[in-house]
Amino acid sequence: MGPAAAVQELGWYALRFVDQLGKLTVFAAQILRALASPPVRVRVFVQAVFDVGVLSLIIICVSGTAVGMVLSLQGYNTLVRFGAEQSLGAVVGLSLIRELGPVLTALLATGRAGSATAAEIGTMVATEQLDGLRMMAVDPIDLVVAPKALAMTVAMPLLSALFITFGLFGGYLVGVGLMGIDGGTYMSSLQSAVDFRDDVLGSLLKALVFGGLVGLIATFRGFTSAPTSAGVSAATTSTVVVASVCILLFDYVITALWGV
């Protein structure tokens, strides 16, 4: 490939990126309009929360506990060299609340619920179910897309909070039960290090942003997938890839901007 062709290729990718970004923005606006205008689809939303939130519960709780346990173990082994093992609670708590909780929850939810959402909507495109809705004068964005995107946004902070709580519990188990740190020391170190406004609120904000991102990307990829089985699988894969990268990029941006 000559240099001109390479530049041409680059230009093509850049154009396609901008094109996709524009379509995504329009899509997001359509979702917001659908949410703001009647009818309010409570039942569909509850079902979506069930699919996204409840079905992700086990993986979130188990992963949270495991991450808390390993953080506690690693933290203890490092801190004990400086004789600062009484700060273990702070280390575990701050890492979980500020960073690992929202990010890992979002990544896990992307793999568990985001891919499922993209596949479900993609299948509905492939089997003409969404066209069927449009022919029945029902907006598929209003009925199918918006409740799923909203459910993801709402469920993410809840899942993240559960992840963190289970992580703190796992950290406590290892730190207090295994390493013999005093339980009161662990908790007081945790409580004095963690601030509601700076840490907890920021953590929830991060989770909320990630939830919106994953919901938007998953529904967009499903909605715009090619109406074939290959299209559905491509939509699923690209949801996981794009959403994961976006979560990590936005994590940096949020941290840099708001110091969360």
């Binding site: 409840v54 519960l57 609340i97 559960l162 409580q191 509601f196 907890v200």
Partner: peptide, 27 residues
């Protein structure tokens, strides 16, 4: 049943947020 389970999920999530805010975050 589904509605009940979703209700439980939301309560558990809110409970975790409350725990983090009040007990850990010192709200």
């Amino acid at each position: 049943l589904r509605d009940f389970i979703v209700g439980c999920f939301v309560l558990a999530g809110l409970g975790a947020i409350a725990y983090l805010s009040i007990s850990v975050g010192g709200l």
